[in-house]
């Protein structure tokens, strides 16, 4: 009897702590959303009001001149293109690293990780001058190229691990049947590694979507992405919190979506790269 009570108390404490941590985790995000639907005079009041009539004025404002749509499409185009290039090139490289024994394998694998160690601010200084001299400033291409500097190493690193997990016997039996290596790669390995590829793509997309430093330096009016756009609501005169709330909520919406509905893949990606070390 005492034992059972003990267990119930323990479970209650466990859930209490978990719920507390969850509230701390999501509260700022809920707050951001509340700001977006609050009438602006209430944001700046020094007293709190829990009940108010929600307004969608802020959403209308950010959509009004068509710029939000433009920068949204920039974010999507840059993100998707980066992910496609990084995944395709990374996939082949990862397979190469996982399946071939050659002298420089370990060295090259390590070398492809170096970009992860170098701070982005170091990479951006030369990219800035290069893009300026090539007249690529403020273009989507410039952003895609810069985002490849972190998505490619990530893709290679993650997918090498996934390909190594594929039992080599599967390949060997296919080879005996006379399949060529490339066919084996496409027919045997790829289908097995699909969840890993999905994890890699989702993670690369989220990183590109969230990126700010490259975007703020390399883009101006035309190639700007959403994270840069939202900072333009901080003007010299005032900070337009309502619009920041609206734009911010919309920016994090796909992130919430990906994390909640493909959490298995996201977690797989996040841990795979690191646990194998």
């Amino acid at each position: 009897m005492g034992n059972k009570m003990n267990k119930i108390v323990k479970t209650a404490i466990l859930y209490f702590v978990l719920i507390a941590i969850s509230i701390i985790s999501i509260f700022p995000l809920l707050y951001l959303f509340t700001i977006s639907i609050k009438p602006s005079e209430l944001i700046f009041s020094t007293t709190s009001k829990f009940f108010f009539t929600p307004t969608f004025q802020n959403y209308q404002d950010i959509f009004a001149n068509g710029r939000f749509i433009k920068y949204l499409s920039n974010s999507i185009i840059v993100g998707v293109t980066t992910v496609i290039i990084a995944t395709i090139l990374g996939m082949f490289a990862a397979y190469g690293f996982a399946r071939f024994k050659f002298r420089s394998n370990r060295l090259l694998r390590m070398a492809s990780l170096i970009p992860q160690i170098i701070p982005p601010i170091t990479i951006i200084v030369p990219l800035f001058t290069l893009f300026a001299s090539m007249r690529l400033m403020d273009t989507q291409r410039a952003l895609i190229i810069s985002y490849l500097t972190f998505t490619m190493p990530l893709s290679i690193w993650l997918m090498t691990g996934f390909f190594e997990d594929v039992p080599i016997e599967l390949e060997e039996s296919a080879m005996i049947d006379g399949c060529r290596r490339l066919m084996v790669f496409i027919r045997i390995d790829l289908p097995i590694v699909v969840p890993g590829i999905a994890a890699t793509m989702i993670l690369s997309f989220i990183y590109s979507w969230n990126e700010f430093l490259y975007a703020v330096i390399l883009t101006g009016r035309s190639a700007r992405t959403l994270p840069v756009m939202i900072t333009s609501f901080m003007t010299n005169k005032a900070i337009l919190w309502g619009r920041i709330g609206a734009a911010g909520s919309l920016i994090i919406l796909p992130i919430l979506f990906f994390t909640l509905f493909s959490q298995k893949y996201v977690i797989k990606g996040l841990t795979a790269g690191s646990v194998k070390g």
């Binding site: 999501i26 939202i230 992130i255």
Partner: peptide, 10 residues
Amino acid sequence: LLPMMVTNVV
């Protein structure tokens, strides 16, 4: 996990 996935700017 959500806080670590959300856009840092936001």
